[in-house]
């Protein structure tokens, strides 16, 4: 154990400043500072507000992580940092911080892909990931389905949202129902008291004609409009809106599509492991539905605990650890932040 590499991970792609420390597959520290409260009144993440918060948070968050793990930067073998995709200005703070730490402590730095890190974090809970695996990554910023054939060198994108991210749809429907931002946990809570079959909301890109061109893609914009129409029609008729039923039926429609397409991807690629990550993976219905349906096909579902599903530094450290163990070379010191980093790039 003690001879496994000690890796530090830095995450700043959206509104969470995260610093994680791992040794091999063992999580030693996961410190987080969030600017989510500063964005609430805007109804979404404001990039400049997030960037300012990262600059203020990075040094104290690093200090907390080092204290929690009982190590110093001199003990660390390599520093990994999210280089993309994400908000350009926010990424830049983390990348510049990682370089500052790397130069001062004379350590190698790895600029890594945020989405691959969402996959890698599961190794901290469930051990090495069998390859190939299929990964479903769903959050406020991304909704992607990928084939993970070699996590150290490149993953294959299968599909992604063509409009809103899944988490964004949760935020918008929460707002429509008068629930706070971010909406995911509130919809989840309301839905527990509701009937998921109460209202038949549409399942985007699941009709035969859509499947031909968008088999593994998602669309949540039509669903969002359908829910808004349904709620407004009730309101105009002077009727009470059954919030729990709307939340449950909306959530059911989202999960139905996510799970259906993810399992289709597993079966058509002969894959027996499905990893789910991103903030929406914390949704209780998504986890339960995925496990229930996957069991029918003998597919194993791996979902990290909710605290590791949302953006954090531990996931970046976990991917860094995998890269070091796989013998991947570090990045150059002039590595750029790339807000549109493609999935085929795991490290730069």
């Amino acid at each position: 154990m003690a001879d496994e590499p000690l890796i530090l991970g830095i995450e700043t792609s959206c509104d969470e400043t995260g610093v994680g420390i791992v040794r091999g597959h063992t999580l030693l520290a996961d410190a987080l500072a969030s600017s989510v409260d500063q964005h609430a009144r805007f109804g979404g993440v404001v990039p400049e507000v997030a960037s300012r918060a990262h600059l203020e948070a990075i040094v104290p968050t690093m200090q907390r992580a080092l204290t929690e793990a009982g190590v110093t930067l001199a003990d660390v073998d390599a520093i990994a940092v999210t280089a993309g995709p994400g908000l350009a200005g926010a990424l830049l703070v983390g990348v510049a911080a990682a370089k500052g730490y790397a130069v001062a402590a004379e350590k190698p730095v790895y600029g890594v892909n945020h989405l691959a890190a969402h996959v890698a974090v599961d190794t901290l809970e469930h051990g090495p990931l069998p390859e190939p695996a299929v990964a479903l990554l769903v959050s406020g910023g991304h909704s992607s389905l990928l084939l993970v054939d070699d996590l150290a060198h490149g993953v294959t994108p299968l599909g992604a949202t063509i409009d809103d991210a899944a988490g964004e749809a949760f935020d918008k429907i929460a707002r429509l129902l008068g629930l706070p931002f971010p909406g995911g946990p509130y919809i989840d809570r309301e839905a527990r008291a509701g009937d998921p079959a109460a209202i038949a909301f549409p399942r985007g890109l699941t009709a035969a004609k859509d499947l031909a061109a968008h088999r593994y893609d998602f669309s949540f914009s039509g669903l969002k409009t359908a829910v808004a129409r349904w709620v407004e029609a009730r309101q105009r008729a002077g009727e009470a809106v059954p919030v729990a039923d709307v939340a449950a039926s909306f959530q059911e429609a989202v999960c139905d599509v996510l799970v259906g397409k993810a399992l289709d991807a597993c079966r058509s690629n002969g894959v027996e492991t499905l990893v789910i990550g991103g903030g929406v993976a914390a949704n209780s219905r998504l986890r339960a539905m995925a496990e229930l349906r996957a069991a029918r096909y003998g597919i194993r579902v791996r979902v990290p605990r909710p605290g590791l599903c949302t953006d954090n530094g531990a996931m970046v450290a976990a991917l860094g650890s995998h890269l070091v163990a796989s013998g991947v070379a570090p990045s150059r010191l002039d590595l750029p932040a790339d807000s549109a980093m493609p999935l085929t790039t795991v490290s730069v």
Partner: peptide, 19 residues
């Protein structure tokens, strides 16, 4: 301009912390 400005400041802050 904010984005560029932060690069110098985060570099100084992180190096000062390590050293």
């Amino acid at each position: 301009p904010f984005t560029g400005l932060r690069v110098g400041l985060v570099t100084a802050a992180t190096m000062s912390q390590v050293l």
